[in-house]
Design a protein around this nucleic acid. Structure first.
Length: 592
RNA sequence: GCGCCCGUAGCUCAGUGGAUCAGAGCAUCUGACUUCGGAUCAGAGGGUCGGGGGUUCGAAUCCCUCCGGGCGCGCCA
């Protein structure tokens, strides 16, 4: 797999062409106002926004700033557009070849060939840096995703979270952000105990409890349970059984700065701890196979052990946001708009899952992140408000904590939804899905859809139509260019080092115009925190290249100079396709 | 019951802080140069943007309402 070039802050690419044009328009607007051609705006001047028109007749780049200024300047949009256009034409900037005013007040601009040429040349000079952009706002970002409990292998239910999170990280990195990828394991608590109890039951030759875990992997775990763990678990089970019958009182509610009770040490917990570790190793291996990398693995137990939960609770208490009620400790979430207050410490002294969430926020932010992103399934939307509220209550900026919710995927096979339950052991693992569909196709599938949209994933369809999948269309374009470049060398032709003066033809101009947009697409994707713009762009670029291929003979020994220039443009296109695919973690094959 | 999300072409999905978008891919149909990769290209048909109201010069986009689907409303995780 061709991986995306790693983030290298030292590579500071020139701003996207679109940005250059926007700045030129802003300068022209200022010039027109200074010259008295336009009045000075009373209130806030609207920011200039430029866009890529869908209709080619509207030029390469257009702006509606004249219409936005019509009200504050009390001039007609056409009059304003005319003044800005005149100022643009009057500037010595060779950026634009033409500037047209179109009703009701649009400014349509066409890029000069020289801009296309120097951009293409820059791609050839620095392929790895192409597509990386300067951040609008440099941040240290923590992205936490997957975070599936280590109670069983990753399933297709975890697929979207894994890919969405990974893709977001890649896009943010290309957008110039400093990204840390993090996985949170809930390695203690009732679910782990149930997993442990299930393993112990099988080891004893008994049936798995009804509320335990029933998958085949539990049988394997029971068989592999080391003797020392087995004996320790058995001894602890016996001891806690004796203790439970001897002392029913548990010391009353924990208030006024008590220590938060840690997880109970019992047989199932001991076995569960071991099993979770084993399962976790499998999860890490699966993620590696997906090309999903993590920088930091944090466990819930470590948050308790290192006092983060306690510190966060203390912080909330000191700020007056905790109170006791019915023997439990509550966070006054309603202060921040939640519909009810939330329990942090149960009446029995045990912290809730929410308590660990709060401790985790404190722990993450203590590491110096400016921004925390949680990739959560839509079923978690009920917990968004309370966690963000807790962050606010601890004194952090509300915007520092962001939850990105993705909708559930319905997996369908033969027209029937695939039902799943990790506990019942009826599920399709992520490994199985990828073995059937392929990583590239799966990545493309998730990358090309907005995370918030509910989608259907038809497994059979994904396999059967694999050759019609747009991902193969894009990869084919890349392989075709690689083939052309190979072909060229056999007749002694190499790409030229520059396309200067060689983009005059219609096929060349159209292709170059598509190629130079990559940084804009990356910029938009990073700021919107979405990836489907990149897949759409890659598809479009492939289409434009295929048209170029149809209209322009690239390898032609009878016209060596023209061939070398077209080879250079083809190479720039190949780099752009490879970088766009690499950004998505998808391979860019030289042949297929 | 309350809250959040969603409903766009036969299918899968973009577009949703108004004008310069009703779009892409697949599927269907019709065509393509003895030539660099036909996993390609050119073209066609196909949608009252779930229904209905409202605001506006203008609404897929904003507001209300209804219908239909998903999810959430624990001292679970």
């Amino acid at each position: 797999m061709t991986d995306a070039p790693r983030a290298r802050p030292s590579t500071q690419a020139a701003p996207p062409v679109r940005t250059e044009v926007r700045l030129a328009v802003e300068r022209a607007l200022a010039v027109a106002i200074a010259a008295g051609d336009l009045p000075s705006p009373d209130g806030a001047t609207p920011t200039v926004e430029v866009e890529r028109p869908a209709n080619q007749e509207h030029g390469d780049i257009a702006t509606n700033v004249a219409m936005k200024l019509a009200r504050p300047l009390r001039r007609s949009p056409l009059e304003i557009a005319g003044a800005v256009a005149a100022a643009l034409r009057g500037s010595a900037d060779p950026l634009l070849a033409s500037i047209d005013v179109a009703p009701p007040g649009f400014l349509n601009m066409r890029l000069a060939d020289s801009v296309l040429e120097r951009t293409i040349d820059a791609i050839l000079a620095d392929p790895a840096g192409w597509g990386r952009v300067r951040p609008v706002r440099a941040r240290r970002v923590n992205v936490e995703f997957v975070s599936a409990n280590p109670t069983g292998p990753l399933t297709i239910g975890n697929a979207r979270g894994a890919f969405v999170g990974d893709l977001l990280c890649r896009v943010l990195e290309a957008g110039g952000q400093d990204v840390t990828r993090e996985y949170y394991f809930n390695d203690s608590g009732a679910q782990i105990d149930k997993l442990g109890a299930s393993v112990l039951a099988l080891r004893r030759g008994e049936a798995v409890p009804d509320d335990g875990y029933h998958g085949d992997y539990v049988v394997t775990l029971a068989a592999e349970l080391p003797d020392d763990v087995w004996m320790a678990a058995s001894a602890a089970a016996a001891a806690s059984a004796a203790a439970a019958s001897a002392s029913p009182e548990d010391g009353g509610p924990a208030i006024a700065g008590p220590a938060i009770a840690g997880p109970a040490i019992a047989g199932p917990a001991i076995a569960g701890h071991w099993a979770a570790g084993r399962v976790r190793a499998g999860i890490e291996a699966s993620l590696a196979r997906l090309g999903v990398r993590f920088d930091v693995w944090t466990t819930e137990a470590s948050l308790h052990e290192h006092g983060w939960v306690q510190r966060a609770a203390d912080k909330l208490r000191a700020a007056g946001h905790l109170y006791e009620h019915d023997g439990a400790m509550w966070f006054r979430s309603t202060t921040f708009g939640d519909d009810k207050d939330r329990v942090v410490i149960r009446a029995n002294g045990a912290p809730t899952y929410f308590a660990a969430d709060i401790g985790y926020v404190e722990e993450k932010l203590s590491r110096g992140f400016d921004h925390l992103i949680y990739i959560w399934g839509a079923d978690h939307h009920g917990t968004v408000a309370r966690v963000r509220n807790a962050a606010t209550a601890m004194g952090y900026d509300a915007d520092a904590v962001e939850m990105l919710l993705y909708s559930w995927v319905r997996f369908i096979r033969d027209g029937v939804e695939v039902g799943m339950s990790k506990r019942a052991g009826t599920f399709i693992t992520l490994d199985e899905l990828l073995a059937e569909v392929g990583v590239d196709a799966a990545r493309w599938f998730f990358a090309s859809r907005a995370p918030t949209s509910a989608i259907d994933f038809d497994i059979e369809l994904a396999k059967r139509q694999s050759n019609d999948n747009p991902v193969y269309y894009v990869q084919y374009a890349h392989a075709r260019i690689a083939s052309i470049l190979r072909k060229a060398t056999t007749v002694g032709l190499e790409p030229a080092g520059t396309v200067r003066g060689a983009l005059g033809g219609a096929p060349e101009a159209a292709l170059a115009r598509a190629v130079i947009r990559l940084p804009e697409v990356v910029e938009d994707a990073a700021s919107a925190e979405e990836t489907h713009g990149i897949t759409a762009y890659a598809t479009e670029l492939a289409t434009v290249f295929h048209a170029f291929y149809r209209d322009a003979k690239v390898v032609d020994p009878d016209a060596p100079d023209r061939s070398r220039a077209r080879l250079a443009l083809a190479e720039a296109t190949r780099i752009t396709l490879a970088n766009a695919l690499g950004l998505l973690g998808i391979s860019a094959p030289d042949s297929m």
